[in-house]
Design a binder for these strands. Sequence first.
DNA 1: TGCTAGCACTCGCGGATCGAGAGTGCTAAC
DNA 2: GTTAGCACTCTCGATCCGCGAGTGCTAGCA
Lengths: 346, 346
Amino acid sequence: MATTPMGARKARVLRAVVGDYIRTAEPVGSGTVATRYRLGVSPATIRNDMATLEELGYLVQPHTSAGRVPTDLGYRFYVDTLPRRAALSDTQRRAIAVFFGEVPPDVEEVLRRTASFLSQLTHYAAVALAPDVERSRVAYADLIPLASGALLVVVGDTGRVDKRLIEAADGVSEPALRRTSEALRRSVAGRSYAEARRRIDRAAAAAAGDDRDVLAAVAQAFADLERSGGPDHAFIGGVANIAGEDAFERRETVRRLFEALEEEAAVLRFLRGLAGEEEVAVTIGRENPVAAMREASVVVAPYRAGHRPAGAIAVIGPTRMHYTTSISAVRAVSRRLSGLIETLAG
Amino acid sequence: MATTPMGARKARVLRAVVGDYIRTAEPVGSGTVATRYRLGVSPATIRNDMATLEELGYLVQPHTSAGRVPTDLGYRFYVDTLPRRAALSDTQRRAIAVFFGEVPPDVEEVLRRTASFLSQLTHYAAVALAPDVERSRVAYADLIPLASGALLVVVGDTGRVDKRLIEAADGVSEPALRRTSEALRRSVAGRSYAEARRRIDRAAAAAAGDDRDVLAAVAQAFADLERSGGPDHAFIGGVANIAGEDAFERRETVRRLFEALEEEAAVLRFLRGLAGEEEVAVTIGRENPVAAMREASVVVAPYRAGHRPAGAIAVIGPTRMHYTTSISAVRAVSRRLSGLIETLAG
DNA sequence: TGCTAGCACTCGCGGATCGAGAGTGCTAAC
DNA sequence: GTTAGCACTCTCGATCCGCGAGTGCTAGCA
């Protein structure tokens, strides 16, 4: 930050206003800033600064005789000039240690719990995305015979597990199933999902009769996986926090937000895009491409599996969010999660 | 119903008040009942009836000069005297046909989509419970070797799939894994989960070395499954409908409801208990054992897999719910769902 | 005995009014 | 560039009031 283009004191005033508003939820007046944050100048001076900051688009007044409230741009400045990595509270630190000390039953469950845990930690809603198909390799694939056909089970090296019913039109013959199963186990391990599909496709072309049908169905299943990223691989926790959050004033806002969260595809695409390679990213209010989230902010970070980025976790709250805590929490959890996933799947 | 203890006309008045209140959300006065529902008596008479109904606990007035509003008891009477099976609208009927015409990828996904679909159909929140462990038999179990150990996959004859990481302290030897896998496939198919666990326990006791460790871990995994019913096997759809529902006046009500829905264990137990063997059941307001749901009503029905009850689906809405539609929808969907699950898993 | 017409009464709701208080912008002086 | 002083604006909450809906009661009628 060093010397900001707006001038050092104005920057301090802006930070004070945003910080105070986040804490109190009340419009902040010049008097408050002068007494609560010792800037060594009088309210009148601060008033001038605030007027400038309003012209620049960082603040607005709800009405003439009220204090100022940050715009999305104001929050953006606040977040960008946040002191690097604030420490977590002891309670949070301990909670994280306990959470990651438990032995989880499987990766999917880890993500589900992580979403829930992250929401408790931050008091906002949280999302955990399952490892991306495109960033996973097939570790294992097999066909499980069932009365009505077979169940294709695909396990990725990121820990993701997909399953899909395979039904041949007029039943599947035992031997065909056994042969396909064998072929799958031999040929797809270590490949990307796309490459696996291509191999199975080729195998289908080369095969005949029942074998061909089964292989074609399996290839189709792989294709579906690639296209949709698999069904429901976003785990959401803490929706109650959003429902109770009165920073969302209108109920309609909450409703639309939930609608968007339930429409998982959109959120998925958006969050995957947001999660950069290394660090925590923040999207504020109208910066958000998803219309229903224009009154919300998102704090997102990627997690890794075996040194490669695999999925992402995020916190979703009102623009008047406690950014410091959320960012610290997301950063800490994403790091620990990467470690855990690595030992589980790697 | 025939002759109600309260007298035939009072019953009609009560039904009129409840029905009108559900439609309009306005307290219902004697005048409205007299003009809108042709009971052949004057408002004065209806006033008397309403006074009686209030004494009996079926109605209340929000304040002296307002119309009447049903109590939970009033809704109960209304639901109990509903004409048997109202027809679904054409739109709904068509939607159901389309929905169940699609080929689903697997049972879990069917339930997830059913929850979402049922919520769209009714405009309330909906829940679909995965098939109960206690009511399923093991169709298939296998160990899938992974870098960090193995993944236990258990498929039930109801279509439920459970997976769980098995990690032996100091790695699992290949041969032990192969032997255990073989033993599993041979010995557990067709058994109940409890019986399967006992067999594996016995096998573990009889085995030695690595085999013993792996078998013990598998038995432990089965035990966990039985105890918890498996993680997250409730799929919830349409929370946005509840967030937007203004029949829930206070926001706190909505918050607590979400909290309860997220605390899946409680909802699970409650709904499983509620779902009778054959028919649709309705729980209204304070009848509800879960405190956070005391201002909500639940319409629930079981679904079957292979002629045995397996799980349940439910609609959750305000006590001022459109019961007729909800009941019809839940009944129709549960029936179709039973058929679908049967062809998939049976 | 049960139903009805008439009537006085109650009470919430929406709109209007008003004073207090917070916070502003402007001006003039330092 | 900063500050003190001051007049001004505007929201918020309290209070008041009239309207209208709906009631309960009483008296009369079949």
